[in-house]
Design a binder for these strands. Structure first.
Length: 716
DNA sequence: TACTATTTAATTTTT
DNA sequence: TTAAATAGTA
């Protein structure tokens, strides 16, 4: 392979990035500007032209999907296996480091990973054992707190209580949580990163080893990195590695889970003399779509600045539909989809995007009526299904008896006469003795702390696990799984269930297939089972098994990031829904919503439809919203309002134009001042014209409904 | 222990 | 509205 094959398909900016000399590179890659191509070609360039050994490259992504795609594209471009080459997610690579250096990291060699659900269960159990009322501390909040600290790189001992008693308790819970995890040999997702970072920080020999090994470190979606990930990168890069990061500040939509766009700026400060390349030529969308997206995002401040352009056609105008209510909205969308399909388009070429998952329902119903197959993104993944997790819990307990969450999960699944009282005694004993539930169970039996009958049941459970371990020791992984799902009684348990039993049994059998298809690392000294269990957590599988049927794509704006479709519907464009009410109170939140809108628009290749509903049923109540402010940010000349053919069934309703809604000036989240009640925030509004009313939450006077025409509110 | 009634809370998501 | 979690009952 010569230079031309790598360079030929690139434009000038892409070429500049791909062929950059050995110095830090920051690629600001706009939507649809070929960022994956740049990463893949950069790697090809480094290997083929610079002659760098693949072992000396590290490529990091956020999702397994992105990692797999990159791997695939490198293989097809270079026609060369990428086995020895480190491409993976932050979590996957951290996991690899921790497995390789478990001892140095202070972890048992057979440590296991908890997913968020496991983590939440563990926290719930912790709160219960401390007799902390869940109404005082919602387990979710505690979980959020702990993860947020870890994402910032902080251990419980590092967190400042700021003289706040509530915070002090959270920190205390964090500390106890750390102890429980350590005792059970469990590691949560954030812990993978934090622990790996500490490993590199505390062991200079390892740090230097990896720093000199990885000559080049490539990072995808850099705007999504959080504090610990950035720290991780800096440690791995050291002084000698050359970082090559690709990101887009305008597509940063994960600030709420710790992502720091500022890392883009920090990068320019922390790495000397970086080359900054902007990819602004877009190969995806029509000129009209790009103009609209550029105009919307221009309302954000503190951008690094970018303007997408295309040398393609302007294309069709953007269509706007003002629906009467959410059902009318869905009907409109589905009718349009039917038109597109009638004109020869495939169903999978159309995507319906919305802000929150709850919105999918109405679209699903309408698609069902129209007989159009669809696929909803998100939801339960294979390895997250309850029955699959039960089976995995058996396997985890076989691999590690101290795994308390797994013990709790299956001690009485299927029911074997071990009731809540028995488990309670075991829990208390475990706590008093400072040992795992497994050891405590043995003690409870020998010390006769429970009834004879309970003791028999509990002993039978302990024997079962021991037997499963012994019986499967010489088996292959798949045989092992097969044996466990039968001998544990799980299969029979679900067979008895008439309702959902059949699919559960199928899923358990699917787990055997997954084990069969799992290729364990040849070099690893760990049992394949331990590796498989980690794989199951880190790569929890697809939301749905590949459905081969051509179907309309339904998803949230968040999950649409990185995808593209010829036709895109962005729905529910109402203030309060999109931008979401809960992001409306501060400027940063609003800007993130706007970026989300930008992401939505730039998913489309040919045609964008924007819709909003004047009336929307949410949580059983009708809401009368104003059209989203983002609609007003799309230049009028790019928009074409679509009106439905008049229908008899439709109530006669004066549809306020967007401009009129703007004229009222009162929007959700808007701060207002009232002569008598003082200052407050607009929570809700309904009606129009002289009847328009708004609900305002006043700081001093509480929540009130006011008629706009009389209240004379002052906008702030 | 399993089923039923009641309460509660409700962006966005990957690992 | 509705789904999920919890509390109460047979």
């Amino acid at each position: 392979m010569d230079v031309t094959a790598i360079i030929e398909p690139l434009n000038e900016a892409q070429r500049e990035a791909v062929t950059a000399p050995s110095r830090p590179v920051l690629v600001l890659a706009g939507a649809g500007s070929g960022k994956t191509r740049v990463l893949v070609h950069r790697i090809a360039w480094l290997i083929r032209i610079e002659g760098i050994s693949p072992q000396r490259l590290l490529a990091v992504t956020f999702t397994n999907k992105a990692a797999a795609e990159m791997r695939g594209r490198i293989e097809s471009l270079l026609d060369f296996p990428t086995r020895q080459f480190w491409i993976g997610t932050f979590h996957g690579l951290s996991h690899r480091l921790l497995r390789t250096h478990a001892e140095a990291a202070g972890l048992p060699s057979s440590f296991q990973i908890m997913d968020s659900e496991d983590q939440l269960r563990l926290i719930r159990r912790l709160l219960r054992s401390l007799e902390i009322d869940e109404s005082e501390w919602a387990p979710k909040e505690v979980q959020w707190f702990i993860n947020a600290q870890k994402d910032e790189g902080l251990r419980s001992k590092h967190v400042d209580d700021q003289g706040n008693a509530g915070r002090r308790q959270l920190i205390d819970l964090y500390a106890r949580y750390e102890t429980v995890c350590a005792d059970s040999g469990l590691v949560d997702f954030a812990e993978l990163l934090l622990r790996a970072t500490e490993l590199l920080q505390q062991h200079s020999d390892l740090r230097e080893h990896y720093q000199s090994r990885f000559m080049h470190i490539l990072v995808d979606e850099f705007q999504d990195t959080n504090a610990i990930q950035y720290h991780w990168l800096k440690l791995l890069a050291g002084r000698s590695s050359v970082p090559f990061v690709v990101g887009d500040d305008d597509q940063s939509i994960y600030r709420w889970r710790g992502a720091r766009v500022e890392n883009l700026q920090s990068f320019q400060r922390d790495f000397s003399d970086p080359l900054v390349v902007r990819l602004e030529q877009n190969y995806r969308s029509t000129g009209t779509i790009l103009d609209a997206a550029n105009a919307v995002i221009a309302n954000n401040s503190e951008r690094l600045g970018k303007n997408l352009w295309t040398d393609g056609d302007a294309g069709d105008s953007i269509k706007l539909y003002a629906a009467f209510n959410e059902r009318d909205e869905a009907e409109f969308v589905v009718n349009r989809i039917a038109d597109f399909i009638a004109s020869g388009m495939r169903r999978s070429e159309v995507a319906v995007l919305y802000r929150s998952n709850a919105q999918s329902r109405v679209f699903e119903e309408a698609l069902l009526i129209a007989g159009l197959p669809y696929r909803v993104y998100g939801g339960m993944r294979f390895f997250e299904r309850a029955e699959v997790k039960d089976a995995l819990a058996y396997l985890r307990l076989i691999a590690n008896r101290d795994d308390d969450p797994s013990f709790e999960r299956i001690v009485n699944v299927p029911t074997r006469g071990i009731g809540a009282r028995t488990v309670d005694v075991v829990r208390q004993t475990a706590r008093a003795m400072g040992v795992s539930l497994w050891r405590a169970a043995a003690a409870v039996i020998s010390e006769e702390r429970i009834t004879k009958r309970s003791a028999t049941s509990l002993l039978a459970f302990l024997r079962l696990i021991e037997q499963l371990d012994e019986a499967t020791r010489s088996m292959s992984l798949a045989e092992q799984v097969e044996h466990v799902i039968h001998a544990s009684g799980l299969i029979d348990h679900h067979k008895n269930d008439k309702l959902a039993g059949e699919s559960r049994v199928e899923n358990l059998q699917e787990l055997v297939s997954a084990a069969q298809g799992f290729v364990a690392d040849e070099d690893s000294e760990l049992p394949p089972l331990v590796e498989f269990l980690s794989y199951a957590v880190l790569e929890s599988g697809d939301t749905q098994a590949e459905d081969y049927e051509d179907s309309v794509q339904l998803m949230t704006l968040h999950s649409a990031k990185g995808l593209e479709f010829p036709v895109v519907f962005v729905c529910g464009l109402e203030d309060g829904l999109f931008p979401h009410q809960r992001s409306a109170s501060d400027a940063a939140g609003l800007e993130e919503e706007r970026r989300l809108c930008y992401v939505g628009l730039t998913r489309a290749r040919q045609q964008v439809f924007l819709t909003y509903a004047e009336q929307r049923r949410l949580y059983g109540r009708d809401h009368y919203g104003t059209p989203s402010r983002f609609l007003r940010e799309v230049p009028q000349e790019l928009l074409e309002e679509v009106r439905p053919a008049l229908k008899v069934s439709r109530p006669v309703y004066r549809r306020p134009s967007i401009d009129k809604a703007e004229a009222s000036g009162v929007r959700l989240g808007q701060r207002v001042r009232h002569g008598k009640f003082g200052e407050g925030v607009v929570l809700n509004s309904e009606g129009n014209g002289a009847h328009a009313r708004v609900q305002v939450n006043f700081e001093r006077a509480g929540t009130k409904w006011l008629v706009l025409a009389y209240a004379s509110l002052e906008l702030m």
